[in-house]
Design a protein around this nucleic acid. Sequence first.
DNA 1: TTATATAGTTCGCGTCTTGAACTTAATCGC
DNA 2: GCGATTAAGTTCAAGACGCGAACTATATAA
Lengths: 399, 399
Amino acid sequence: MKRVDFTNTQVASSETARDINRGVVLNLIRRRQPISRADLARVSGLQRSTVSLITEKLIEESWVVYGPVGRLPRGRRPTFLRLNNRKAILVADIRPRQITVAVADVNGRFLAQEGMLTPPDPQTAMVGLSSRFKRLMQSHPSLLFEGIGISVPGRFDPATQRVVFAPNLKWSRCDLKSPLERATGLRVEVENAANACVLAEIWFGNSENVRDLVAVTVSEGIGVGIFTNGQLSLGQHGMAGEFGHVPFDPNGPPCTCGFHGCWELYASNRAALRYYHESRSAPENGLAFEDLLALADARDAQALKALDKMSRALGRGMRTIVRSLAPEEIVVVGEFARHWNRLGPLITEEVAAGVLAGNPPKVRPAAEPGMARLRGTVALVLKKYFGPAERVADERKSA
Amino acid sequence: MKRVDFTNTQVASSETARDINRGVVLNLIRRRQPISRADLARVSGLQRSTVSLITEKLIEESWVVYGPVGRLPRGRRPTFLRLNNRKAILVADIRPRQITVAVADVNGRFLAQEGMLTPPDPQTAMVGLSSRFKRLMQSHPSLLFEGIGISVPGRFDPATQRVVFAPNLKWSRCDLKSPLERATGLRVEVENAANACVLAEIWFGNSENVRDLVAVTVSEGIGVGIFTNGQLSLGQHGMAGEFGHVPFDPNGPPCTCGFHGCWELYASNRAALRYYHESRSAPENGLAFEDLLALADARDAQALKALDKMSRALGRGMRTIVRSLAPEEIVVVGEFARHWNRLGPLITEEVAAGVLAGNPPKVRPAAEPGMARLRGTVALVLKKYFGPAERVADERKSA
DNA sequence: TTATATAGTTCGCGTCTTGAACTTAATCGC
DNA sequence: GCGATTAAGTTCAAGACGCGAACTATATAA
């Protein structure tokens, strides 16, 4: 199965048009399934005949299957089409402490899921991941596995195909792709967790037609994924989005990155814990962020105050994102979002108060915070087969 | 239930392929002229026959003309093709104090240029611009004018087609397009000055194959233009790039934008003047930035110190750009760049010292700082006819 | 049974790129 | 000079694709 073809300047032929239309149809089926060919033609603007030919191929490639037959007040009944949920993706979300491995179908639904502790070195991790992936493939013999997607708490350099910056993970410049590809025989895609969250929102969330969106992942640190002009923005070495290490207060304390006063020192889970301990003027103990959330659940005043302070810092720092990127939406991913009813308005308020002109962006929690990373990596793999979720409108003039 | 717009998915046909190839050929001619059709075929990967057909049309549309005949050690001599320099664009660069109006040919060369003082209100400005444009068209009867490009020291909202944020210009929410289009009969394109500088570099500079570039314009304030994935990133309301109003020191002085400690308070021309006066512990007099540069020319110690300080602040603030966007290049536009030999290294040093991982971006002055805005607006108009300067490699699967 | 409405297919046509064959035009060796 | 060689540029049939009209299939309502 061919995938990409990089030539000097990208020229087009009839096949290019076919590929584009194939992507349009496939993505429409994905978003609006079940849908009839007649509706696909109406929605896409393609001819019914063209849609029939394209879907015939998609069915042949087993991306699409026939669904139920519809009912109409008059006329022949439409045959609905939908994605073939036997097409599946293996995914893994690597986090500093734990790795989650899962099997997902083409619709981003999870069919199996398991966890493992994150080993200290990438080699051990790759061995563990390989065996789990192989086991999952064996235990789901009816599925058609199309690839593997990995999300990492760091930046993945598309040029060198390596993880290059992961301060909260101790692995450095490691190659996660080739060992897994060799072990499983499947293509492996790796992406930063925040970027994965962006894809989750764009592919499986309600932001289908949003062209400029930013995802902010809040955990130990802060990661940001940038989606602009309908595409992920990666930057040199895949380093775009390190807003977590943009200075929030230049006179602030030192950060793991080697600099001072980074945003994530004020607005991450660790920051909230620090605020909590400061307010009790007690030394740091082994309290985990999860415990702080539990205290907040129990309406502990100091825990709530710490979360409030963290949220305000989060909102304040987002002003930098708004001024630099002006996204339409900011999606927040993080355990703290469990208290969105209380904390969301604080963030929104800080963001809105800092807008220079125009409407403030819509700030909202992720559709399914716990699944965002994993689901995004499903999209990461599917993107290669489906084409972009949104096709950038081209403003060329026709002579 | 709201009605969905069904025309939003962009489908392709043979004509789409043709348009893409037309753009590839036209841009190749632009960058490599004079060039033979045989070379175009070699470089593009298209067939010689296809190139011939495409160029025939381009010649018919008078975008391209025959050039001199080449020489080869053997074989038939190639006929070189080049852009028709009778194709022309009218451009204007609106700045807080002065507006520059010019005629440029398709290669970005200027054939006429004149200045006017910026009127206090947009209406008067539009009247003045219209009459100058019409006069320039009349005085160049042999040229084929294809459009008008305007650069403004503010943000242009593509949705409403209005200037929405221009704190250094007092005009608010003004429509520059329709009055000029009515008066001249030509299509008008408006864009922010920093974005125009980006286009100047990408189209006419040496950054042809750069996919992630940022332009920083330094004058009264600081403006930033973002180019990522081979496209300008505009954001909601065209507001992307307002790094000038990202907080540099949250405890700093108030800014015209209503907030405190913005970067441009520390790294703009105004900041340098302030540093100069502070060092002399003298009150602000009518000294213009141009005068400060003249003092620096004369090696005035305090003037140089002020510029040094401004440059270091510039470099420090660029760390935010590097961390958030990770561009391959940062292009600096501003009068101060006249002293690049001294100030450039200071900026580069501050930027390089703040890199989290990977190579630091190349920081360099604009190719032709004085012409960048104007030349960029030429590209702004041409882009509509030529298609994007760089075609984004598409990673869709080919069946 | 007939009229009407809708889904989906078939097929000829136009557009575009391809690639081989062909024409044009130059140099070089003899 | 003259043919061999080399390269530029053109011509043309073939192939791929989307279009759109005509056609088939299948439903409801009168």
